[in-house]
Design a protein around this nucleic acid. Structure first.
Lengths: 338, 338
DNA sequence: AGAATTAAGTTTACCGATAACCCTAACATA
DNA sequence: TATGTTAGGGTTATCGGTAAACTTAATTCT
C-alpha cells in the first residue's frame, strides 16, 4: 500500500509536508501543495485510518448495537443512524445481539478492542447492565436506544411507551371492548414493562380491574406461544381484543388466528406497538407507530454531541412521541354480529 | 486507556512478555503467565486492535455493501453474513448504498481507508465497475453478491435468476395465462436483465411472441410507477398476470391494484422474485424464493477463503438455487368468472 | 540597517502493538 | 572442564500517521 512516505519521496518533501497537505494544516506553498496532490492521485493514495486513529486517539467510528436486525423497526432505526453518522463524518459498525446476552457481550468486547468513539446501544434486556458498566469503565460514551436499563443513568432516546400503550388500549375501550388481553414481550425489557403499565393505566381510568389471566409474557422475537394463545382464547370469559407488545408478536398472533379460523377484526381485534415496515401490502394493523428513523438519527446526534463535549454534562433523555394509527385490525366487539 | 506497557510495569516484565501472554506465543513460565493475566484482568485491559492491525497489516474486518437495507432480502443476507463473519473471527462493517452510485463511492473510499481485509459487494448497478476496479487496484479481495457486473471476472455468489424467472412464468403459463406482463427493476442491474431473459425464455418455449408493451422498467426500490401501470392495464389486450422483478415492486403493484379496486388473483395474478420477509402476516405471494441467508453466509466464506489464500486461483462462481413457491396471488385467468 | 516576524518546511518523538533477533543463567552432554 | 541447548525472558525496529518544536530564508517594521 502507498504511504505518505512514498508520496514524500516522489515529491521531494518530508512526510510531514504530505500530512499537512492532506489535512490542510500548516503552511504549504500552493506550488508544493499541487505537486503533492497530483502525486497522491497518480499513486492512488488513500490514508490509513488505523495509523491516524492510533495517534489521534479517535476512530471516527461508532457502533450500533440492536437486538433484532430482521425487525423493520430496528432496520429503520439503523437507516436513520447510518444516514446521520455518514452525514456527520462517522462510520457505523453494526451489531446484532439477537436479544441474546452472550452475543451482546461478544459485541461489547469487539467494541472495546475496536476503540470506537461511541456506542448507540439498544439493550437486549435489563441484564445488559454489566455491559454498560464495561463501556463506562472504559470511558466509551454511549446512548441508550429504545430501551432503558434500570440503574443506569445516561443519555437515552426512547419512546413514550406508557402513553402509547394507554392510547392504544383506550382506543379499544372506546370501541366497546372490555376484555382486553395483552400479549407482551419479556418483562426484562423496559419497553415491555412500560407498555404493560400503560395498558393497566387505561383499564384503571375506565374502572376495569386488570385480570392476570389476560396478560401473557413471551418474547419480542417469538412469533407466539401457541399453547398460551389457545388457553387465552379458551377462557370462560375470553378476550374480545388483544394488545400485542410489538409488531412481530402481532404477526405471530394473526397467523395463529388464521390457522384457527378466527377472523380479525370481526371475531377478535388485534392491535400492536410499532409498524410492520415497507413490505406490507395492505397496512392492516391498528398500531402505535414510533418514529424509528428519528430514533436512529437523534441517537447518533446525541452521541456525537456527547463525544465532542458540545453538550451540557447532564444526561439527555429524549422521548420521541408515538402516533396512534387506526386501521383495519380493530373494530367493535362482535362487529360481525352487529 | 490501559496498554501493554501499563501491564508490563505492574508485572515487572517487558511489554513483549505481555504480548506473548496475550497471543500465547513464545516461552513464558506458567508463573509469569498467570501473574500477567491477573493484572490484565484487574486493569480491564483490552488490546488495541488499531495498533495490532497496523503492524500485522490485517484488520479482521470485512465490509458488506448492500443496495437496500430496508429490503428483507438484503436484511437476511446481512444476517447470514454477520453470523458467518462472527463465527470465523471477523467483524462486519455494514454499508447501505441505497442503489445510489454516489453513496456507493463514498463507501468504497471509506472501505479503502479502513483497510478492511475484504468486501462483500452487492453492486448498485453495472455502473459500479469503476468502484470494483478501485478495490482491485488496491488489492482488496472482494466477492460479488447477488448481482454480477459486466466486464468483471471475480468471485461471486448469485442466484439462478434466469431459471427462476422462467419457472415462475411457466407457472403462469401453466395456469392458462397468455398475456403476461413483466414489471422489472432497472436493466442496469444484472438480475433484472437475467430475469427478463428468463421471462422471454418461457414465452419462447411456449411459442408466445414477446410484446414490448407488456414489459416495464422501473426500479427495485420504487414502489411502482402509477402511470405506467395504468397504461399497462388500459391496453387493448391487457395482461392477465404480472411478473414483478422483485418483492418491493410486487408490493407496490398490489397496493395500487387495491386502490384501483382490482382484486388479486381473481382479476389479475401477480408473482415476483424474492420473498417478503418475516413481517408478512399471511404469505400471499407466489414467488421464486432465494436462500438469502445462504447468500450472505456463503459469500463470507468464499471471501475469507480468498483472503487467506486457502482456495485455488480461479474465480469461484457460486450459483444458489431458488425455489418456486406457489401461494395465493396466482390463479387461472378469469378465475372469478370460471 | 538591524530586529522582529512570517512563510515554508523539516526533525523528532510517539500512538500501541508485534516480529525478529538477542541475551543469560541453568542444565545437559561429551 | 568446555561446549551445546534450552527455558525464559528482553531489545530494537517498525507499522503509517500526526503534534509540537525547530530551521531557514525571506519579508516587514521601525
Amino acid at each position: 500500500m502507498v504511504t505518505i512516505y512514498d508520496i514524500a519521496k516522489q515529491a521531494n518533501v518530508s512526510a510531514m509536508t504530505v500530512s499537512k497537505v492532506i489535512n490542510n494544516t500548516g503552511k504549504i506553498s500552493e506550488k508544493t501543495r499541487q505537486r503533492v496532490k497530483k502525486i497522491m492521485e497518480d499513486l492512488n493514495y488513500v490514508p490509513n485510518s488505523m495509523a491516524r486513529s492510533l495517534v489521534l486517539q479517535e476512530t471516527k467510528m461508532l457502533s450500533l448495537l440492536i437486538p433484532d436486525i430482521t425487525n423493520p423497526f430496528f432496520t429503520t432505526v439503523a437507516r436513520g443512524a447510518e444516514d446521520a453518522a455518514m452525514r456527520l463524518g462517522y462510520k457505523l459498525l453494526f451489531g446484532n445481539s439477537d436479544e441474546n446476552l452472550t452475543k451482546e457481550k461478544e459485541y461489547v468486547d469487539m467494541i472495546l478492542s475496536t476503540r470506537v468513539d461511541g456506542v448507540l446501544f439498544s439493550a437486549a434486556s435489563d441484564l445488559s447492565g454489566p455491559h454498560l458498566q464495561t463501556l463506562r469503565t472504559h470511558r466509551i460514551p454511549f446512548v441508550l436506544l429504545d430501551r432503558a436499563v434500570p440503574g443506569f443513568d445516561c443519555d437515552a432516546v426512547t419512546g413514550d411507551n406508557r402513553e402509547g400503550a394507554r392510547r392504544l388500549v383506550e382506543h379499544l375501550l372506546a370501541l366497546g371492548h372490555r376484555r382486553i388481553a395483552m400479549v407482551n414481550g419479556s418483562l426484562l425489557v423496559s419497553t415491555a414493562r412500560e407498555r404493560l403499565t400503560g395498558y393497566k393505566d387505561a383499564l384503571k381510568l375506565n374502572d376495569i380491574p386488570p385480570d392476570d389471566e389476560l396478560i401473557l409474557e413471551m418474547s419480542y422475537k417469538q412469533f407466539a406461544d401457541e399453547e398460551a394463545l389457545h388457553r387465552l382464547l379458551a377462557l370462560p370469559s375470553p378476550p374480545t381484543a388483544v394488545f400485542a407488545g410489538n409488531n412481530f408478536i402481532a404477526v405471530g398472533i394473526i397467523r395463529k388466528l388464521l390457522d384457527m379460523g378466527i377472523s380479525v377484526p370481526d371475531q377478535l381485534s388485534v392491535v400492536c406497538f410499532d409498524d410492520l415496515g415497507a413490505s406490507v401490502i395492505d397496512p392492516f394493523f391498528t398500531v402505535v407507530s414510533q418514529p424509528a428513523y428519528q430514533f436512529g438519527a437523534m441517537g447518533i446526534q446525541l452521541l456525537i454531541e456527547r463525544i465532542k463535549g458540545t453538550t451540557t454534562p447532564e444526561w439527555k433523555k429524549l422521548i420521541l412521541p408515538s402516533e396512534l394509527i387506526v386501521r383495519n385490525s380493530s373494530a367493535p366487539p362482535n362487529a360481525h354480529a352487529g
